[in-house]
Design a protein around this nucleic acid. Structure first.
Length: 565
RNA sequence: GCGCCCGUAGCUCAAUUGGAUAGAGUAGUGGGCUUCGAACCCAAAGGUUGCAGGUCCGAGUCCUGCCGGGCGCGCCA
C-alpha cells in the first residue's frame, strides 16, 4: 500500500483514539491529510491535522500533536516495523514523519516493475474527454496543438489515476461554416475549370483552399459546373471536409494523439436525436417562443440570459445540437464529461453548464476547461495568426521545425488557463535553456551508464533489454546520497492524483523537471560504475529502475525517452 | 456597463487546492571535465507576490474595493 495512505490511516486512528468522543471518524479521516513538505528538514511526509483540530478541540495544537505522536509511535513500532525512523512535533503544531532508508530501497523494486504512480482514486468512474474538436475548415494550427497536447496528457494522467477515459473529437461537419467552406473552395474550382464564381465575402482564404479546388478540378474536370450552384457547393463542401478531416487525423496521429471516437455532428443531426431533445425540452417546460424563435430558459440555471435554440427561420443554433450531444454522452454511460475549449468559448461553457443543470445533471459532472491562446514568437518577432484570413502557422510546421517532443512539452508545461508564449527559437535551441532536453538528457545518461556496465564483465551477463534488474539484489549500499532522488520518486503518486483531480497536467512536467534536476546533481557527484562491485550493482539497479520510471512518465505527456541525443 | 481569466525576480514561468524560510530556468558574475555523456554541476546575486483593507494559528493562494492587461457579452460557431 501507498505510504501516504498508511500514514493517513495511522493519523486518523490516532485522532480517534485520543479524541473519538468529540471527533467523528469521517472528520478524522478528512483531517488526517499527509503531504510532502517542501523542505526536507520538515520530514518526508507531514500532517497539519493538529493545527486544524486546535479550534474544535479548544486545545493547544502542540499538546494535540504530542498525544497523537505518543499513540502513533506505539502503533508504528508494532505494526509498521522499519517504516519510520522518527516522528517529530514542531511548532506551531506540525507532525513530521521521517521514513527509514529501507523503505526507499524497497521503492526502487516497486518502480522497476513498471506502472508506478498509478492509483485507484478514479476507479469506477467513466470520463468522456472531448478536445480539439476544431471545425474541419482548415489545417490544425498551433492553437489546436496546445489543446491536443493538454488533452492527451490529461487523458493519460486520468487513466493513470484509475479513471476510465474515452477520448472524443466532435466533428462539426455541417452547417453554415461548412457551406462557407464549400463556397470558398468552389470559387477556386470554378476558376480552374474555366467558370466563374466569386469568393464569398467572409470566405476562407489560404493556399489550401485553392489547392483543394484545383485538385478537385484535376479529378472531376468541369463536371460540377453543370450542377445547380447550391448542389455543387454542397458537394464541394463535403469533399473539402473529407480532405481536411484526413489532414487533421494524420496531424494528430503524428503528434501522438489518438481518439476513441470521432463524433460526426452531421450524422448525429440526421439521427433525429436533436429533434428528440427539443421535444424533451418542451415537455419539461424549459423553452418558450419569443420573436419567432424558440428560447431555452437557461437563465434560471445560472446563465446570464436565455438563449435561442431554434432560430426564426426554423434552423437550430449551434448550441442546440451541442446540448443534445452532451445528453448523448451521458446517455452512453459516462459519469463525467470534460470539454477542452478555447478562451473565446467561455460564454458557451456557462450556457452548457446551465443547460446540463436544467436537464438535472449535477454540475460537478460537467467540466468546461479553457485552454488559453498560444502566441507564437520567433525571437523578438510575434507571428500574427488568423485562420479565416489564411494566415497561420500549422501544428505540423511547428513540429517539423522544433520536434514533437519539445512541442508537446512546451504546450503541456504551462497552466492551461494561462496564455502561452511559444518561442520557436527557444524551443528549437538544443541547449540548457530548454527544459525538455534537460529531462531527456537524464534518459540519455541513464542509458549511457547501463551501456558502460554492459562493457564490464562483472555486470554484462545480467543486463537484459538495456536494464540491469536481477531478481536478487542487495540495495543496502544505497544511502544518504541517493535519498533526494528517491524522495522525489515518493512524490509521484500524489502529483498524479492532484493533476488528475485539478485537471492540471502541467504539474507532471514540473515533477519531471525536478526529478531530472536531482538526478543530474547526483550524477555529477557519484559514480554508478566503480571498483566497488556491491555499490555498483545497487546503483545500476537504481539507474535501471529510474529508466523504467522516466520512460513511463514521459510517455504520459507524449514525450520520448531517448537513449542517445 | 456586466461576466470570466490573469497580474510573482530584468525576462519566461513554478509554488503539493490555506501550510513551515515564495522556488526554477534564462540573462549577467565567479568556479568545476585524466574516470559512466559538460545538452551537466557548484557558488554568490536577484522579491513590499499590482495596490489597500479583511478572515485565519497561518494568505501568492479565500473575501471586499481599487489599478492594469486579455477574452466574452449574436437568431455566428
Amino acid at each position: 500500500m501507498d505510504v501516504r495512505q498508511t500514514l493517513h490511516d495511522l493519523v486518523a486512528s490516532a485522532i480517534l483514539a485520543a479524541f473519538g468522543d468529540t471527533i467523528s471518524p469521517e472528520d478524522a479521516s478528512a483531517l488526517a491529510i499527509v503531504e510532502m513538505p517542501r523542505d526536507q528538514a520538515h520530514g518526508d511526509l507531514a500532517t497539519s491535522a493538529c493545527l486544524k483540530l486546535a479550534r474544535p478541540l479548544r486545545r493547544n495544537p502542540i499538546d494535540i500533536a504530542d498525544s497523537l505522536t505518543m499513540y502513533m509511535e506505539g502503533v508504528a513500532k508494532v505494526e509498521l516495523p522499519g517504516l519510520l525512523d522518527d516522528i517529530e512535533v514542531v511548532a506551531p503544531g506540525f507532525v513530521n514523519f521521517h521514513l527509514g532508508l529501507a523503505f526507499f530501497r524497497e521503492l526502487l523494486k516497486t518502480i522497476s516493475k513498471g506502472g508506478y504512480g498509478s492509483s485507484e482514486i478514479g476507479a469506477g468512474t467513466r470520463i468522456n474527454l472531448e478536445f480539439v474538436s476544431t471545425n474541419p475548415t482548415g489545417p490544425l494550427t498551433v492553437a489546436h496543438g496546445r489543446q491536443a497536447a493538454v488533452g492527451d496528457a490529461l487523458a493519460h494522467i486520468l487513466e493513470h489515476a484509475g479513471y476510465e477515459v474515452s477520448r472524443e473529437y466532435y466533428l462539426n461537419d455541417t452547417g453554415g461554416q461548412i457551406r462557407m467552406l464549400g463556397a470558398s473552395v468552389y470559387s477556386h474550382y470554378a476558376e480552374a475549370a474555366g467558370g466563374e464564381y466569386p469568393l464569398p465575402e467572409n470566405g476562407y482564404k489560404g493556399e489550401y483552399i485553392d489547392e483543394i479546388g484545383r485538385e478537385l478540378f484535376e479529378k472531376e474536370g468541369d463536371a460540377l459546373l453543370s450542377l445547380p450552384e447550391d448542389a455543387a457547393i454542397e458537394q464541394v463542401g463535403r469533399h473539402a471536409v473529407d480532405k481536411i478531416v484526413a489532414w487533421i487525423k494524420a496531424d494528430l496521429e503524428a503528434f501522438r494523439v489518438r481518439y476513441d471516437t470521432w463524433f460526426s455532428q452531421k450524422t448525429f443531426e440526421e439521427s433525429g436525436e436533436v429533434a428528440a431533445l427539443m421535444e424533451r425540452l418542451r415537455r419539461m417546460d424549459l423553452v418558450y417562443e419569443k420573436d419567432g424563435a424558440v428560447w431555452m430558459k437557461v437563465s434560471e440555471y445560472g446563465d446570464e440570459k436565455d438563449r435561442v435554440v431554434v432560430k426564426s427561420d426554423g434552423s437550430y443554433t449551434y448550441r442546440t445540437p451541442d446540448i443534445a450531444y452532451h445528453e448523448n454522452k451521458f446517455a452512453r454511460g459516462f459519469d463525467s464529461l470534460i470539454d477542452l475549449l478555447g478562451p473565446d468559448h467561455h460564454g458557451h461553457i456557462i450556457t452548457m453548464e446551465a443547460a446540463m443543470k436544467a436537464l438535472s445533471h449535477p454540475v460537478e459532472n460537467f467540466h468546461g476547461l479553457i485552454v488559453q491562446f498560444c502566441s507564437l514568437w520567433r525571437g523578438e518577432e510575434k507571428l500574427k495568426m488568423s485562420t479565416r484570413a489564411g494566415q497561420f502557422v500549422t501544428l505540423r510546421e511547428v513540429c517539423d521545425e522544433v520536434g514533437i517532443d519539445a512541442t508537446r512539452y512546451f504546450f503541456t508545461a504551462r497552466k492551461t488557463d494561462a496564455p502561452l508564449e511559444f518561442d520557436l527559437e527557444l524551443a528549437k535551441r538544443q541547449s540548457m535553456d530548454n527544459p525538455v532536453y534537460y529531462i531527456q538528457y537524464m534518459s540519455a545518461r541513464l542509458s549511457g551508464v547501463i551501456e558502460t556496465a554492459g562493457r564490464d564483465e562483472r555486470f554484462a551477463g545480467e543486463i537484459h533489454d538495456g536494464l540491469f534488474l536481477p531478481g536478487e539484489i542487495d540495495l543496502s549500499p544505497l544511502g544518504a546520497e541517493e535519498e533526494p532522488v528517491l524522495r522525489m520518486i515518493l512524490a509521484l503518486p500524489s502529483v498524479i492524483e492532484k493533476s488528475a483531480q485539478a485537471l492540471e497536467p502541467h504539474r507532471l512536467c514540473g515533477w519531471l523537471y525536478d526529478l531530472a534536476c536531482l538526478f543530474h546533481h547526483y550524477y555529477a557527484h557519484c559514480r554508478f560504475v566503480s571498483q566497488d562491485a556491491a555499490a555498483s550493482r545497487a546503483r545500476l539497479y537504481m539507474a535501471s529502475a529510474l529508466k523504467v520510471l522516466l520512460t513511463e512518465t514521459l510517455a504520459l505527456i507524449g514525450v520520448s525517452a531517448p537513449e542517445k541525443m
